Computed example of a mutant assay.
Amino acid sequence: MSSNKNALIRYKTLDKCLKNKYRKYTLEDLIDECSEALFEFEGKESYVSKRTVQLDLQNMRSEKFGYEAPIEVYERKYYRYSDPEYSIHNISVNESDLKAMNNAVQILKQFKDFSMFKEMNGVIQKLEDSIHATSQKSIIHLDKNEQLKGLEHIDILYESIISKKVLKILYKSFTARDSNVYTVHPQLLKEFNNRWFLICLYKQKMYNLALDRMESIEIDEKLKYIDKELDGDEYFKDIVGVTVSESMAPRNIVFFVNSANSPYVKTKPLHSSQEIIAETNEGTLFKICVQINFELERLLLGFGESLIVYKPRKLRLRMEEKFNSGIKNYQNLVIPDDNG
């Protein structure tokens, strides 16, 4: 269980004890209550230290989390709220808080038809009711497509990652003639360019499987799940897209973008490693350090004639080859008759 979730459980437990008018709680009692609460959630012994509970009480008293709880020690050893009506769940919010929450609700509402968020519908409605959210149209519009093929698989994949279950996936890649069953250990879900992928362990190697190529999914209860404990930020840090090579080192990609388009690359970097090497009136020379994969090539090709790859040479030649193939396609173009 994450430390944040542990802290929330402790705060909730301390709040319950401090507002209890019918029992006196010493510091040792509070420690026992927190340890017992964590045991109920985790299912294993979880002792909370004296220092941890003292720090929790200090945080609840402070403005750090907005509680400012009126915690007092009486008879030199018992803890309670000096205001018997106080609870950390009854914190008042100001007009600015309501406005921020209302904006958040408007964004959440855009996901109401998305498979993963269907169970959030009731929560969103409660939020709207509790903060008297306005029925204004959404000002922030997120790029989404609920009709994408494969979205129906997200729920079972998500739950399988959480509950650490091995899956048998009937999968047909774009290059395969027939469907095949993959027995995988699901690790992460990744969205890129409006498509979803499952990052999974298959035959001791990491693979990414597109959700729109999955035909059926079954849980295999017989096999023991292998958890690679992947951190998404770390796992994807050296790439553009979803395709990670375990054997390929990131390379310095040097490319030139003309002056008309370089502002777009400056304000929306192709990768977090992006640097500006030089600028002239004609354009800007950039550098990123990433693995060379299919998604990177697609991204660079998308800039058309406005971008030129300088290094590495192998990537430059491949880009040149693709542009030459594109030119031949247009030179040999035969437009079919349009009777519609």
Rank of each mutant, 00 (worst) to 15 (best):
M101L: 15
T52D: 09
Q58D: 14
I71M: 09
T52R: 10
L108C: 11
Q110C: 09
Y79K: 03
E45G: 12
S49I: 08
G66I: 05
N94K: 13
K50I: 11
S49G: 13
I107C: 05
E68T: 06
H89K: 12
T52S: 11
Y47S: 07
N103I: 01
N102W: 05
S87F: 08
K77E: 04
V105W: 05
S87D: 09
V73N: 07
N94P: 01
I91H: 00
Y81M: 02
R76Y: 11
R61I: 02
E85D: 15
L108D: 09
M60W: 03
D97S: 07
N102L: 01
F111S: 15
L108W: 10
A100S: 04
R61S: 08
K77S: 05
K50G: 04
V73W: 01
L55M: 11
K64G: 10
E45Q: 13
L57P: 14
M101F: 14
Q110G: 12
A104R: 01
N102C: 05
R76D: 14
N94W: 03
N103Q: 13
K109N: 07
Y79Q: 04
K99E: 14
I91V: 06
K77L: 07
K44L: 07
S62Q: 05
R61W: 00
S82E: 04
S62H: 01
G66Y: 10
S62K: 01
Y47F: 12
S96D: 13
N103W: 12
A100H: 12
N103Y: 13
L55K: 14
L55I: 09
A100P: 05
Y81R: 02
K44R: 14
N94V: 02
F65Y: 15
S82Q: 04
Y67T: 06
E72K: 00
N102K: 04
D56G: 08
H89P: 01
V105S: 12
E63W: 02
S87R: 00
T52E: 10
N103T: 09
V105T: 10
I107V: 15
Y81L: 02
K64I: 15
H89R: 13
I107P: 13
D56I: 03
Y67E: 03
D97W: 06
L98H: 13
Q110A: 02
A100L: 15
K109T: 00
E72H: 01
M60F: 06
F111N: 03
H89E: 15
R80M: 11
Y79W: 11
V48G: 04
E95W: 13
N94R: 10
Y74A: 00
R80L: 04
K44T: 05
N103G: 07
K77V: 03
S46W: 01
P70H: 07
L55W: 10
D83C: 02
Y81W: 12
V105D: 02
R61K: 15
R51L: 00
Q54V: 03
H89Y: 14
M60S: 02
S92F: 06
K64Y: 14
V53Y: 02
S49N: 13
R76I: 04
A100C: 08
L98W: 02
E45F: 00
I91C: 06
A100K: 14
I71N: 05
N90E: 07
V93N: 07
N102V: 00
E45N: 10
L55Q: 12
I71Y: 12
E72N: 01
A104D: 07
I91Y: 02
R51Q: 09
K77R: 14
S87Y: 03
T52F: 05
I88W: 11
L57Y: 04
S87I: 06
D83Y: 04
T52H: 09
I71V: 08
S49E: 13
K50M: 05
